[in-house]
Design a protein around this nucleic acid. Structure first.
Lengths: 252, 252
DNA sequence: GCAAAAGTGTTGTTTTTACACCCATGT
DNA sequence: ACATGGGTGTAAAAACAACACTTTTGC
């Protein structure tokens, strides 16, 4: 989880000259968030180019793969302390055929040899996470791309095989929703049962009954009931909860 | 699933000279089988070296990652038509520190420059499978290594981080036992319920009740009941079954 | 008191588990 | 006939789903 700002390459030209990456390997982060009941995913949109991609990057020679995912996410989005989980590796030989980099560089009139390493074949390792949408509103300014939320059900045109990667990432999140939500930065420290239920409903795209949901969740035995939340509304105040053993999850 | 024998590099020296691999990437196959109620895993034991490794190898530049796993498994073990499933990618920067190749080459007096590509850092993609132990008894002859079954609970000294990879592979198999067994070449075309139960019991290391197991499995609705099996024993003949939609699973 | 939203209880159904019984087969 | 192992049935228990009722809160 170490973030080293000195390694944060903001400048594309500088990045392209860097040779101390593990060749042919990349990482891509699929970050899901919510807004008004809609599930969204964080993408980079290239300026002047009708093409989006996942926030991804390369692995330094002396860096663990997982650390690279954490760093890359930080560099592109300024998100830190995100629980990232590896879900799948994508290695079809043609997966980078729709090469956004080449198009992008041409449009920026940046001269790069045709056999430059960034145009080589890449095998990418997919990481994903769920985060609290509202905590993130400022993204790094960048001459090349902007970072924005897009609806999962209405994706823009994607570079490479990134649409497939998002699909697989969503499937992974749905399969692992219990662990994922506990370990994610999705909910505040203290939250109500209704908030938790809403998250489940949006992620799984499925409605639950209030009381049965509560029973099921409490049966997992990972929630601790706290004080009531008085928000001034004219109704019974709901209890607040927190994840009892969140520390355990965060270790992995 | 295409096996190209012309690419089958038997000779280590020849292999080392080959440069048309994707650099820094490898695949490793964790193949599980059974014998007398014990779960085993297929390993390569280097001659004259007290060190084992998973059957693994590299990816050709023009080859899909998954195809590489299939090919590599064939080259090292002569197993074909194996249902391989990707489960995890291992990329810690120190994972190849216990470098068997270097030790091996030195012991064989093969001269290789210290900065040879095989000594570089590798990120490996793990694939695993369950197979019918008894179908495999002849493995390729090789001057460098031999292919043998080892008990999962009593592993020999392993090269690199291969012990960790086996552990994660076993966890994956246990989580995905239903799909895995249906798609694997573990059982013959036709099998009895008891045979299937034995497989589950060994993989999950857990006993089940005969009748309840049958109910649970039949509820999955993926078995087709066939004729009875008369094996000459003095008891009621059990039905044979086959996987009804095995074709579907084999597609993925 | 009333509406709104949360907590809790209750009942019926489905699924899981444990036990029992019956059936087919070769000797 | 009988021992052996397989198929099937059933009752108890647990888990789940649907519905109803009660409680708390601010106006």
């Amino acid at each position: 989880m170490k973030i080293d700002d000195s390694k944060n390459k903001q400048n594309l030209q500088e990045l392209l000259d860097t040779r101390d990456f593990v060749q042919h390997i990349s990482v891509d982060c699929v970050i899901f968030g919510f807004h008004k009941g809609i599930m969204k995913v964080l993408l980079l949109k290239y300026h002047d180019l009708d093409l989006c991609s996942l926030p991804g990057g390369f692995v330094f020679n002396d860096e663990d793969l997982h650390d690279a995912a954490v760093r890359v996410l930080y560099e592109r989005t300024h998100l830190s302390n995100i629980f990232l989980e590896q879900f799948q590796t994508f290695g079809d030989r043609n997966r980078t055929e729709n090469n956004a980099h080449r198009v992008l560089l041409a449009s920026k009139h940046i001269e790069v040899p045709k056999d430059h390493w960034t145009f080589q074949r890449f095998i990418t390792v997919g990481y994903c996470s769920l985060i609290d949408f509202s905590l993130v509103d400022t993204f790094p300014n960048n001459m090349i791309e902007e970072c924005k939320w897009f609806e999962v059900n209405n994706l823009p045109k994607m570079a490479f095989d990134h649409e497939e990667i998002i699909k697989k990432g969503l499937e992974f999140i749905r399969r692992n929703i219990d662990t994922q939500i506990v370990a994610s930065s999705l909910l505040p420290e203290k939250f109500t049962m209704k908030e938790l239920q809403t998250v489940y409903e949006i992620v799984l795209d499925e409605k639950f009954r209030r009381n049965n949901f509560q029973r099921k969740i409490l049966a997992l035995n990972s929630l601790e009931r706290l004080e009531k939340l008085f928000d001034g509304s004219a109704n019974k105040a709901p209890y607040l909860y927190k994840f009892a053993d969140k520390k355990l999850y965060e270790l992995l």
